[in-house]
Nucleic acid binder design. Sequence first.
DNA 1: GTCTATATCATGATAGAC
DNA 2: GTCTATCATGATATAGAC
Lengths: 209, 209
Amino acid sequence: MDTSAAYSTETERRILQAATDIFLLKGRDGARMQEIADKAGINKAMLHYYFRSKDKLYEQVFIVQLEQFFTGLLDAIPETDDVHAFLEHFIDSYMDSMAANEGLVRFIIWEIQSGAHLMPAFIQTMFSKRGYRKPLFLVKIEQAIDKGQMRNVEPVNFVISLIGLCAYPFIARPVLEKVLGGLSISSAEFLAQRKTEILQLIWNGIRPE
Amino acid sequence: MDTSAAYSTETERRILQAATDIFLLKGRDGARMQEIADKAGINKAMLHYYFRSKDKLYEQVFIVQLEQFFTGLLDAIPETDDVHAFLEHFIDSYMDSMAANEGLVRFIIWEIQSGAHLMPAFIQTMFSKRGYRKPLFLVKIEQAIDKGQMRNVEPVNFVISLIGLCAYPFIARPVLEKVLGGLSISSAEFLAQRKTEILQLIWNGIRPE
DNA sequence: GTCTATATCATGATAGAC
DNA sequence: GTCTATCATGATATAGAC
């Protein structure tokens, strides 16, 4: 009776895995149904049998990947009340996550630059799964300001700064690695140095006046 | 005798302008030769007559646009020796430039995410035009450190931070504007607020210990 | 230089036999 | 459910008349 079980046949999982690999590597437009079929070890007709169209297939991949990404981001928000420890842990987790998922970063940027059309629907889904609550991040910042642990920054703007500092090296990776010959963004050396610099910059930057 | 003049016929300029508009709007893959031809007021055959292929046409557009972008970036580096004024002026110019060129930002990000394959050749071109010199930015920072005007940051890492703080809102624009309902990244209000926050964050963040 | 018509090809999608 | 064969479309690119 459980018809939803049919939604996860072995074949279907193989297709989704192959589609994920290809879409993350080549992007929505660059991906070819033939290539996905080959990688999944089936023929094109089966792709359309299981998923109606390329768009539908892409949408499935998108939802799974973004859920994974945001879950990771939320999990990187520690519970501690100490602002310094909070920042240090977040920066550490978030950057490690990006360093380990080059394809996912590229995928998300592609999607954003294409207009982020799937975003609103995705956010709706996340909300209905987790229930709406004010982002923990903003709450933490407001608390820290109230306690006088940091100066009166505009919380949203501050989050943009923090995320930007962490994410930018990965966004610009291809240029940086080409221009600064020999640099590897994901190398332990660069990552460690970058984390330290971000933390120092932020930590000094938000000190109460 | 001046055959190079033939390289800038009215038709050719119309084509380049149309191609620029379309490529910036739709990206390399999304752009259609037919659409470019329509916009230029000619037919497809002429595109291939003047530019051999779509790739060649794209490359021309790419070079012109990137030269424009980097020239703007370099022009945004003021001569002043005062670190605070230097940062303030750079942040101001750079962000205004991005706010006014949404299409160009998207174009560059697309190109970067596709692997930045045209970058090395482009940088070569820039060097041979301007001659190599150590980036003024790095020189300024090293001087400021020597003079004790800022703490001993790693210069390259600092530049990445500064550019990241300025550029990230524009990179993430589609998401930010969708998630934070009503926010307009290019609005005078947001820009002014953001510039102030970046300058304060950076300025506090690099104070000598 | 400019146009029409067409070659050539790749892709997403489907029909229909088994 | 699975396969082969094929359609329909839309793209780049070119041939050839004017």
